[in-house]
Write a protein that binds this DNA or RNA. Structure first.
Lengths: 239, 239
DNA sequence: CCAAAAGTGTTGTACATACACCCATGT
DNA sequence: ACATGGGTGTATGTACAACACTTTTGG
């Protein structure tokens, strides 16, 4: 039966509707040193006690991105978060209770804006260092790995990394982020040259405060500038 | 309700299972001049008469890639086709008969191996020049566009274009393919230099036959060579 | 011998890499 | 004054872009 040849009420064909759709979010954060991901305790057999991604079943009246936004809001209190669909996962036996196809999104949050510490309703999720994660519930380890690979690709070809930093940041902080995500160290002078030549950072005219060394100059990502450059053919590239 | 907190039989929760999952395949072909896509007539209101992608509902015991392979086999007779998941599409109203989330794959076939001409069971699908396509059924135009964008990205960063050419091809044929997909003309000498320097083409030692001009040398893609180079850090890049 | 497309090298320019010292702040 | 990390320039090699003529075949 072809998608376009369904000519009876879909809801009555059981074999094709015995599946559920979920959305799982891989929420990345960066604390200045480590790349982190937001996880919850799983309480479903046989994965009880393991950590899992945050996710939920898709509701009848919401689209995929809507579900992802809802899940993020629910678990972090955050709106307007950068997110991008990564991949659909549909192994027949990926879920112990039945057929569940999941659509994975990865999102990048400014860890400073995450309100876990204050609001009690966001206490179920916890940050985990990527480097320390071993086993996860379901196929969430695979999902995490796919999202990590995609993130590593994206930070090199688009200015998405800024979503992990505070609105004002120094160039060493930015470099640090790239080194952490890419897992290799970069030459300081060359990194600065490449970034500054792009002209997509605004010099705020401020410097770091209360650091016990020479304070760095603060920059912010100039989104409008980036968009106008992009329209003129500019391509962000950090390879 | 969280995915990992479902503790009753999923099949009995109606609101969450009133959706179906389909897989749609964007099958690209290249005839030496034009980039083409395989389409079928749609016979579902309100799209009757329009062309649509080839697709089908996901079966209970098959995974997503399995469904994509089945669909391709059914419509083209081909196995072992290059394919890659592109994106999930889940707008609430994308399907007139109910909630259908679709997972899109794009695949690349050697048009010479496509058996439409011989076997009657493959006659429902037809090749259409990408440049001449206007309206499609459902949201298939969006799906096609996403797949095209992904293809344009992939041919620049991985040796996937070879899947659209016959096993033996000339450098001008390859260049032609790239020019068609990318929509811009490339410098012949620079293109040849870049490709040949990669050392991923095998010189077959044969030349074109029956062409009314100087015959080109035939090459084939050396997959083993590519894989071993890749393990040593080589990155395919045609930007 | 004509048409048509294949094949071939050089040069200038821009970008990437490698690399070492001084500077501003807090303690 | 010392420790800490921020900030800066140059030289060299490599990669890319631009560009025009000769070669081989079929008709």
């Amino acid at each position: 039966m072809n998608e376009q040849n369904i000519n009876i009420d879909l809801k009555r064909i059981n074999p094709y509707f015995g599946a559920a759709i979920s959305v799982d979010c891989v929420v990345f954060g960066f604390d200045g040193t480590e790349l982190k991901v937001l996880l919850m305790r799983c309480n479903m057999e046989p994965y009880v006690g393991l950590w899992s991604l945050i996710g939920d079943l898709l509701r009848v009246n919401e689209d995929l991105e809507g579900a992802a936004k809802r899940i993020l809001k629910r678990r972090t209190g955050l709106d307007n978060v950068f997110m991008e669909q990564t991949k659909a996962f549909g192994s027949v036996d990926r879920h112990p209770l039945g057929r569940v196809i999941t659509i994975a999104y990865y999102s990048l949050v400014k860890i400073s804006e995450y309100e876990l510490s204050n609001a009690p309703e966001y206490r179920e999720a916890h940050w985990h260092n990527i480097s320390e994660i071993t086993e996860l519930a379901f196929d969430h380890r695979d999902i995490l790995d796919e999202c990590l690979n995609l993130l590593r690709k994206h930070v090199k070809e688009a200015p998405v990394g800024f979503n992990l930093l505070p609105p004002k940041f120094t160039l060493p902080q930015l470099q640090n982020l790239y080194e952490t995500i890419l897992g290799k160290s970069l030459d300081k002078r060359n990194f600065r040259k490449k970034i500054l030549k792009m002209k997509i950072l605004k010099d705020i005219g401020e410097t770091q405060q209360n650091v016990s060394h020479r304070p760095g100059k603060l920059y912010s990502f100039d989104e409008k500038r980036y968009e106008s450059l992009r329209k003129d053919g500019f391509i962000f590239d950090l390879n």
